[in-house]
């Protein structure tokens, strides 16, 4: 079962400015959900938290702890917004593709899926994160210190240090994409088997449930890993560890 993407070519008449509509929609949905979670949690705030506020405070503490585990909170406080947005957006995106999928059966265009199962999206986030690490590295340590970091611990590792930056970017984006893409493929296959007949439905039912459960696990873990690595890379660039 090969799925196509609903692509609009040359948007606004700009050559090469293609848009994957499914990504756009799913990202918007994910962002809306995240915003709603945050917005409704923050409605009528109380000193004695209850319900949603409690849950969101738990998330805040969780992000805080993750940041604190890589750098001291005084430095890490400015990255809190980045961290919580990345975590929630990726987590919700990962979860979106699990319960169902919407496919246009005539054109085989896949409309509803995890936006993070698209390498363009994950690489965008990865590049953004790496760019931010460089930005904050220069901003907080100065150009000289930032540049010197490439000659550490010994100068001849300079090529490796440069390669590392690209490798970090690539692995950060591709790890997320690979996990989520595999999840989508297997879900698609299981759905295909399940839809093929009664026997198929019986055979695919239990693996489907198991895989969906595992997908939730993968989705949560990958969101956490993305957050963790973001903070690790940031702390690597921002802290003077020498």
């Amino acid at each position: 079962m090969q799925h196509e993407s609903p692509i609009v070519h040359d948007l606004f008449g700009i050559t090469g400015f293609h848009v994957n509509l499914s990504n756009i929609i799913m990202l918007t949905v994910a962002a809306l959900i995240v915003f709603c979670i945050g917005f409704f949690s923050a409605r009528n705030l109380k000193m004695k938290p209850s319900g949603m506020q409690n849950a969101f405070e738990w998330i805040i503490d969780f992000i805080k702890n993750t940041i604190s585990s890589t750098m001291d909170w005084k430095t890490g406080e400015r990255f809190f917004g980045l961290g919580i947005t990345i975590f929630l957006l990726i987590f919700v995106s990962n979860m979106l593709g699990i319960p169902f999928m919407i496919v246009n059966s005539e054109t085989h265009e896949l409309w509803w899926k995890s936006p993070t199962a698209d390498p363009v999206i994950t690489m965008t986030f990865a590049v953004m994160v790496i760019f931010l690490t460089h930005f904050y590295g220069v901003k907080m340590k100065g150009v000289k210190e930032y540049g010197k970091d490439y000659l550490r611990p010994v100068p001849f590792l300079l090529p490796l240090n440069i390669i590392e930056e690209f490798a970090n970017t690539l692995t950060l984006g591709m790890r997320l994409f690979g996990n989520l893409y595999a999840k989508e493929i297997l879900l698609t296959l299981l759905t295909g088997i399940g839809g093929a007949g009664i026997l198929g439905a019986m055979g695919a039912g239990i693996p489907m449930i198991a895989w969906q459960a595992f997908s939730i696990f993968i989705g949560a873990i990958q969101a956490f890993i993305f957050l963790m690595l973001t903070m690790v890379y940031l702390s690597h660039k921002v802290l003077d560890e020498h």
């Binding site: 948007l11 848009v19 756009i24 990202l27 962002a31 947005t85 698209d118 999206i121 953004m128």
Partner: peptide, 17 residues
């Protein structure tokens, strides 16, 4: 590479943040 997606997701991310 769908540059539209890139631009859109970055914008979405910043707005959401």
């Amino acid at each position: 590479i769908y540059w539209g997606d890139v631009v859109f997701s970055l914008a979405m991310f910043i707005i959401l943040l």
